[in-house]
Lab assay of single mutants.
Amino acid sequence: CHSECLGNCSQPDDPTKCVACRNFYLDGRCVETCPPPYYHFQDWRCVNFSFCQDLHHKCKNSRRQGCHQYVIHNNKCIPECPSGYTMNSSNLLCTPCLGPCPKVCHLLEGEKTIDSVTSAQELRGCTVINGSLIINIRGGNNLAAELEANLGLIEEISGYLKIRRSYALVSLSFFRKLRLIRGETLEIGNYSFYALDNQNLRQLWDWSKHNLTITQGKLFFHYNPKLCLSEIHKMEEVSGTKGRQERNDIALKTNGDQASCENELLKFSYIRTSFDKILLRWEPYWPPDFRDLLGFMLFYKEAPYQNVTEFDGQDACGSNSWTVVDIDPPLRSNDPKSQNHPGWLMRGLKPWTQYAIFVKTLVTFSDERRTYGAKSDIIYVQTDATNPSVPLDPISVSNSSSQIILKWKPPSDPNGNITHYLVFWERQAEDSELFELDYCLKGLKLPSRTWSPPFESEDSQKHNQSEYEDSAGECCSCPKTDSQILKELEESSFRKTFEDYLHNVVFVPRKT
């Protein structure tokens, strides 16, 4: 048989008469490798580009789960590009990614509803959504962080984005990388972005840091009482949809009607710091009717980097990364020049730590249904340095008659930039024990000054392991946590139920 035959053949030295091919099969003959313009397919066939392209389009058009959109890589027609490569849609070739590779997620039936953290986790790592997304989240724990972890990498949506009755959302900033909504599939009414009845939605994105392009379709905003109209108009300008909307697409009466839409800028007039305090004062603000001013709200939190936005980490279910302080308005003076500047002394802060701070007014709604208010920009203030805590785990070892090696770990709280350490030492008198000992005694162990690591005695271990207080009263049991108490109650309830079950099964009433 021919060298490319495997198993047997019907005619000697003829690659077209093989029972099976050793390498690849091409047009009725066995070959060692697939010549151009053919590609290896499933490690035994040679196919042309049209064959591989037909497989790709067949799966793409069917949208069946589990099928493969075949691509070409290293002269092979394979189910998908290997790690580190992405497909070129024009020629199906796998090309190296520039940075992290995109991950295209194809949605069944063309859309997916995100109504819980669990459903959001199914899209973790996706960068391109081939379909439409509907966000409908009523509640949950730590929602802002969970949504950002699972949806934060999405850069492109081919269909539309719909935010509907998501009472738990305060902001859409968890879509931190969303840059493009194509609108290839539109919501009824030709809408590519749809926001309806979101009672706590206050911000779409921080438009000073976020760009969003909507290729096709219109915007729809109705019944978002805490979303200011200025935020919607800003989205029109940034996304390129200005002029597409009709009169009733953006409701003037049901958007922002319960919001404090600040239209003035508060400026800080005085800032002073110490290692654990920050004193702030800002310019006074009074609405047209000074009785509408209820006070100020001061927001602050630790910020290692200057990239904080107002609604980071917030949701309507209680999660809030900001510390909020309510401040009463100052006494009002008739003389504008003698107006008191409101302020606040922030206490209990960490030394040498940068804080993000902003302040906003708290006002009631005027009778004319106009909203007044003022808010400052987010500023960054760093507390002063102070003395560091003591170095940890000092170790001293003498390696000769004239040297001592000293080692330690950095302090747990540096409280500033540590530039150097101060080492103090003092000579001590020799131990009298060394002169009084009889060095001729056998088995004498000389006193040693070398360091030995501390260890816990058996008594201390027994005390720590004991669940009861000892007789001397030195140790006591740790208080039980809520989960331990709940577990004990469940076990007790189970024992009672099981005992009742045994009584009912074992003891049967005697027939009379």
Rank of each mutant, 00 (worst) to 15 (best):
Q306F: 14
D206Q: 09
Y194L: 11
F290R: 07
R179A: 09
F299L: 05
I378P: 02
S171L: 01
N211G: 12
I134Y: 15
V170G: 15
R291T: 09
R176N: 06
K226D: 09
N150I: 12
M235A: 07
Q245T: 11
M297K: 04
V117M: 13
D393M: 14
C261D: 02
L294N: 13
L169C: 15
S402R: 04
S401H: 09
D393E: 13
G125K: 09
F268M: 04
W322C: 00
L392A: 03
Q121I: 10
H106D: 14
V238S: 06
L293K: 04
T185P: 10
Y372L: 06
L161Y: 01
Y305P: 04
D249P: 06
T113F: 14
G189V: 05
E302L: 08
T254N: 06
Q339D: 10
W408I: 12
G131C: 02
L294M: 13
C261V: 02
L362E: 11
N136F: 09
E246Q: 08
G243K: 05
N141K: 12
V324W: 07
P336L: 05
S274D: 03
F221T: 08
E122W: 11
G189S: 07
T323Q: 12
Q339K: 12
V117F: 15
C261N: 01
R347C: 09
S319R: 15
K162S: 13
L204S: 05
L280E: 03
E310F: 03
I404S: 05
S402V: 06
G343A: 05
T213I: 11
K253Y: 07
Y160V: 03
R202F: 05
L186K: 05
E283P: 08
I327K: 02
T371P: 06
E264W: 02
N211T: 13
S192M: 02
A195N: 09
Q403G: 07
I137S: 02
V324S: 03
N200A: 04
T254C: 14
N198C: 01
S401N: 15
Q199P: 09
L227M: 12
A195G: 13
I154S: 01
S338M: 09
P336S: 08
I214V: 11
K267L: 08
I278S: 01
T215L: 02
Y305C: 15
Y305T: 13
A195F: 06
A195H: 04
E155S: 14
Q403C: 02
S400P: 04
L265K: 11
W352A: 06
R281I: 13
A259R: 12
A120I: 12
P304M: 10
P330T: 14
W408H: 00
I379V: 11
E236V: 06
T353F: 09
S166V: 03
A385P: 08
H106K: 11
L349F: 01
K350I: 03
L186A: 03
K267E: 02
T361P: 02
L147A: 11
Q403P: 00
Q121R: 07
I250V: 15
N387L: 08
K253A: 08
W207D: 08
T371I: 09
D328S: 03
I327G: 02
S338F: 14
K209S: 10
F220T: 15
L161E: 00
L123F: 08
I271S: 06
I357V: 06
A303K: 15
V104C: 14
R247V: 14
T127S: 11
N130W: 03
P330M: 07
W408K: 01
P304Q: 06
F174M: 06
L153D: 09
N320Y: 09
L133D: 00
K337W: 12
K337S: 09
E155V: 14
V390H: 03
I154H: 00
D377H: 06
S376F: 00
W344L: 07
L331H: 08
D115Q: 04
E237P: 02
K103H: 06
F296S: 13
T241K: 11
R369Q: 10
D206K: 13
Y194W: 05
E283M: 15
D377L: 03
N320L: 13
Q354P: 10
K112H: 15
S400D: 06
P288R: 14
E264A: 09
Q216S: 11
S158Q: 06
L227N: 00
F296C: 07
K177L: 06
V390S: 06
E231V: 02
N141S: 13
E146L: 06
L172M: 08
L265A: 13
I181N: 00
L161D: 00
M346C: 06
Q306H: 03
P288K: 04
K103D: 11
G256P: 03
G131M: 01
E156T: 05
D312H: 09
T361E: 07
D115M: 02
D367T: 08
F193P: 00
N150H: 11
G152S: 03
A259C: 14
V104T: 12
G140R: 11
V359L: 06
S116D: 14
T273S: 05
P329F: 04
N190Y: 04
S269Q: 05
Q121L: 08
N307L: 13
G313T: 14
L265M: 12
K177E: 09
E109R: 15
L229I: 14
R272W: 05
R165E: 02
S274P: 00
L219A: 05
Y167K: 15
Q245M: 15
Y372S: 05
H210K: 14
T215R: 15
S173P: 02
A149L: 09
V104A: 11
I327N: 01
T185C: 00
F221C: 12
S319M: 05
G373S: 07
Q203R: 10
S132R: 01
N248W: 11
L294F: 12
S319K: 06
R281C: 05
E236S: 12
L201I: 05
S166C: 13
D197S: 02
